[in-house]
Design a protein around this nucleic acid. Structure first.
Lengths: 186, 186
DNA sequence: TCAATATAGTATCGAGTCGAAACTATATTG
DNA sequence: CAATATAGTTTCGACTCGATACTATATTGA
């Protein structure tokens, strides 16, 4: 029997193969798709080249090149930060969102998990989360968790949230985005 | 809560990042490591450039290039097939086996799965296997399963096995290797 | 049986990845 | 306000990757 880790690796490989196939049609490399998917999921503190390089495990220089390509293809736009002039934010264009939708439909359209009971799905999900956390802490990887699960996250009232690190207020929809500065709450 | 598929993708990403880090030290790209790992796991019908290209989801030309690099680094050796003169078999050198051992120790040394009960591990493993199978059949991917789980596999007696496709006898240790021609038994 | 076709693998091209290193510009620190 | 840290860019060389054309050997079918 293959180990669960082997299976995870192999499933991950197959997902990437499918992404690559779709990418070929759209003239996008796997790394491009990963960049777009990340930018779609991350919060406003984490849409920078540096955050991307942490998430994707490569260097600033490499990411800078990929961004150049995506900019040329009109899939992302650079927006300068209005506080720190060194920082740029990367925004998805409508064209990019269309591409992401197409990828999502093609890869996740079959409801691969629907056939299992809630109990099984729950067990699998919890175990995977725990494995992920172990892997992240093991090598000091950043966790890139959802804002609302972060130790800096505070709820101040009905629909009023705040990031304790930047002291800035957060909109409801922002609390489910992933963040470069995320640290597990316990 | 992130979906299990997202988690699998992310865990797969992290495993690849760790592989990349190790690879940088050994001057190997991720694809090189994947090639070596595949050749370590595959049976004697499946150690060819074509099988590799199926497993890794790329073209023959690309694989041919990677093989050239790995040959130059003395990590694999080409051995011509003695029946079909078009075919070459790729064999790992002792140097490659050392590299694989180092990678395995560094990535899988922590027994990430030991902390869960047998029951949980079993549930997770079965679900992952089922997801993998669904993904493979969905896009007509080859299954690359273990020889002994193949519909062509036959047991002829105590420690006597045979592949029904090639009609050749199989050694015990061969029955756990993965095969290009693998088709699930039911 | 032997010409047509299929198959395994190689060679070459151009665009892009990737890590490393050097670089520019802006912030922070002491 | 000088030293240092940080965000991002540029450049280099080796390599990936898909596409295409190619060589050599096997299989086929009229």
């Amino acid at each position: 029997m293959p180990s669960s880790l082997d299976l995870i690796e192999r499933i991950g490989q197959l997902i990437r193969f499918e992404q690559r196939e779709i990418g070929v049609r759209e003239d996008l490399h796997p790394i491009h798709i990963q960049v777009l998917q990340y930018l779609d999921k991350c919060n406003r503190y984490s849409d920078t080249p540096l955050a991307l390089s942490h998430y994707l495990g490569s260097t600033k220089g490499t990411i800078s090149q990929s961004i150049l390509v995506l900019e040329k293809k009109q899939l992302i736009k650079k927006v300068p930060d209005n506080k720190d002039k060194r920082v740029v934010h990367l925004k998805l264009t409508p064209k990019a969102k269309k591409v992401l939708l197409k990828i999502d439909e093609q890869i996740f359209t079959d409801d691969l998990l629907d056939k299992y009971s809630d109990h099984v799905n729950n067990t699998v999900n919890k175990t995977l989360q725990s494995i992920l956390k172990d892997l992240q802490t093991r090598n000091n990887h950043r966790t890139f968790g959802q804002c609302s699960s972060c130790r800096f996250f505070t709820k101040e009232g009905e629909n009023k949230y705040r990031c304790g690190l930047t002291s800035e207020p957060l909109k409801l929809e922002e609390t489910v985005k992933i963040c470069l500065e995320h640290e597990p709450s316990k």
